[in-house]
Design a protein around this nucleic acid. Structure first.
Lengths: 208, 208
DNA sequence: TGTTACATACCGACCGGTTTGTATGCCAAA
DNA sequence: TTTGGCATACAAACCGGTCGGTATGTAACA
């Protein structure tokens, strides 16, 4: 969403340059992590020089934060197809979300990995700024899922009482862990199998 | 286990020095990750100099591999209390394992984190040596859990048929993801809640 | 037992290259 | 003519790893 209407053809496109830097960061850090990715590499990947980079971001950390936030928005825009689907019941929405997640494992030449999970694992215990940024994204994902679970509880008979937020954290953790383990054992099929089991777990929360 | 009886007092202790380097590595990398931890820092932490370090390990990567392997042995020695407990049934052994995992969240001044998970997340996609080392540890954990699940299947009536290995990967992923998310949102209680839900999930695989 | 010969454990200076970040200046758009 | 976007050049610290040297232990042999 550009702040000014891009009516004229712009030769200079600071907003685009900034986004190009974020895109390059995501691409590289998803492969190599934060510390393993240098500002020089990011600049090269984005077709930019260091001076230009530091014009847009005051530090590497600030860029990392921006990249995590962008990843969160990006993700939400995918998940919204399920989250906002008021045409179907809450449990079906959860199913649809799991299908979307499964879809992430199907892309050719692109592994199913998460920027938030990677930055959390690497930086959460030493970098408060990045930790807060990651926690925020995980929180908001969780809130959405908990919302659906709470709604499903109203629409259906829960088999036993359960805490929507706790179950959401369960699914959140499973998802992050699946991507982590999937990368190590190099199996996207395992991630899909996990999501299938997650579906039966969610179903088992409700009667019938 | 020294090769020769240590009857005399030894001033030099290469085995101990090597282990001290591994210990220091685990301590530091658990906080800062692989790339975020320099060889100099490790040497300082272990009270050793760089020259000495490279006498014991040919590279930083070799040390990382050794640290991951040591972590795997360390973990197995904890889990064995459950894995090898032939006095109880397989499902009870699974319960006991989940309790052990829960215990990891209770330690003061020590977060519940995993060396294997951290190295996987950071290095699996760029460093084949570390990826293989991590995959091996995750595999062997999984094999042990799958074994218990298969045995439980024989001892009890499964509610529905399930694949022990797939369920083991599910639990493995949940466990890794719980530690990851727990670090980001700074909540060991959430990890414990996840493990409790894992227990009900495992129980739901069997009738009654 | 004393001596010689050698292997092992360890030290710390040093190397080339890379790191994040800065200082400065050019050039096009407003 | 001013301002903002970007490039060039540079700084100072730090990186993994090497190297020459020393201290310590062991084995063979006289």
């Amino acid at each position: 969403m550009p702040k000014k209407a891009a009516s004229k053809k712009r030769e200079r496109d600071p907003e685009g340059t900034r986004q190009a830097l974020i895109d390059a960061t995501v691409r590289l850090m998803l492969q190599q992590g934060f510390a393993g990715t240098s500002v020089d590499m990011i600049c090269k990947e984005a077709g930019m020089t260091k001076g230009g980079f530091f014009h847009h971001f005051e530090s590497k950390e600030a860029l990392g934060k921006a990249a995590v936030e962008w990843w969160g928005q990006m993700g939400a825009s995918f998940y919204n197809a399920a989250w906002q689907n008021t045409a179907i019941g809450a449990l079906e929405r959860l199913h649809q979300m799991l299908d979307i997640m499964s879809g992430f494992t199907m892309r050719k030449d692109e592994n199913c990995v998460c920027m938030v999970g990677m930055m959390s694992q690497e930086l959460a215990s030493t970098n408060p700024v990045m930790q807060a940024a990651c926690a925020k994204e995980l929180q908001s994902w969780n809130d959405q899922v908990a919302l659906m679970l709470a709604e499903a509880k109203k629409q259906l008979k829960p088999a036993t009482n359960f805490d929507p937020k706790a179950v959401a954290w369960f699914l959140n953790s499973l998802w992050q862990g699946s991507m982590l383990v999937g990368k190590a054992v190099d199996s996207q099929a395992m991630i899909r199998a996990n999501l299938k089991l997650a579906r039966t777990f969610v179903d088992s929360l409700f009667d019938k």
